Amino acid sequence: MVEKLKAFYEKNFSNSPKAKYSVIAIACVIVVALAITSMRKTVTVSIDGKEEAFVTYKGTVKEALQDKGIQLSEKDKVQPSLEAGVKENQLIAVKRAVPISVEFAGKKVKLLSAEETVGDALLAESETLKQNGVDYNKELDEVSPKVDEPVAKDMDIKVVDVEVKNLKEKQSIPFETVTKKDSGLERGKTETKTEGKNGQKEVTYELVYKDGKVASKKEVSSKVVAKPVNALVSHGTKAPSVYIPNRGSNVEFKKHLVMESTAYSGDGITATGSVPVYNPGGISTIAVDPSVIPLGSLVYVEGYGYAKAADTGGVIKGNIIDVFLSSSAACSSWGRKYGVDVYIISYPGEW
Rank of each mutant, 00 (worst) to 15 (best):
M1T: 10
M1L: 08
V2W: 15
E3Q: 14
A7Y: 08
A7K: 12
E10M: 10
K11H: 13
S14F: 01
S16I: 13
P17Q: 03
K20N: 09
Y21H: 04
Y21K: 09
A25L: 14
I26W: 07
V32C: 15
A35N: 15
T37S: 15
M39P: 02
R40H: 04
S46P: 02
G49V: 01
K58V: 09
K62A: 12
K62H: 07
A64K: 03
D67Y: 05
Q71N: 14
K77N: 12
V78E: 05
Q79A: 05
S81E: 12
L82A: 04
V86P: 03
R96A: 04
V98W: 08
P99Q: 13
I100L: 05
S101E: 10
G106Q: 10
K110Q: 11
L112T: 03
S113F: 02
A114M: 06
A121D: 10
A124M: 09
S126K: 07
G133H: 09
E139C: 06
V147A: 06
D148I: 15
E149T: 12
V151Q: 01
A152N: 11
D161N: 08
K165R: 09
N166W: 12
K170M: 13
P174E: 01
T179L: 13
K180F: 03
E186P: 02
G188H: 12
K193E: 13
G196A: 11
N198T: 07
G199I: 11
K201Q: 15
E202V: 14
Y205V: 02
V208M: 11
K210F: 07
K213Q: 10
V214D: 00
V214G: 00
K218C: 09
S221V: 12
V224M: 05
V225D: 08
V229R: 10
N230K: 09
A231D: 03
A231W: 04
H235N: 14
K238N: 08
S241T: 15
V242D: 12
F253Y: 14
E260D: 06
E260R: 07
A263I: 11
S265C: 10
I269K: 13
A271I: 01
N279I: 14
G281A: 14
S284F: 07
S284Q: 06
S284H: 07
S284K: 11
V292H: 00
V292Y: 00
I293Q: 00
V301N: 01
V301P: 01
K308W: 03
A309G: 06
A310K: 00
G318V: 02
D322K: 01
S326R: 15
C331A: 06
C331E: 02
C331H: 00
R336C: 04
K337F: 01
Y338I: 01
D341Q: 11
V342N: 00
V342I: 06
I344V: 14
I344P: 00
S346R: 07
G349N: 14
E350T: 13
W351Y: 15
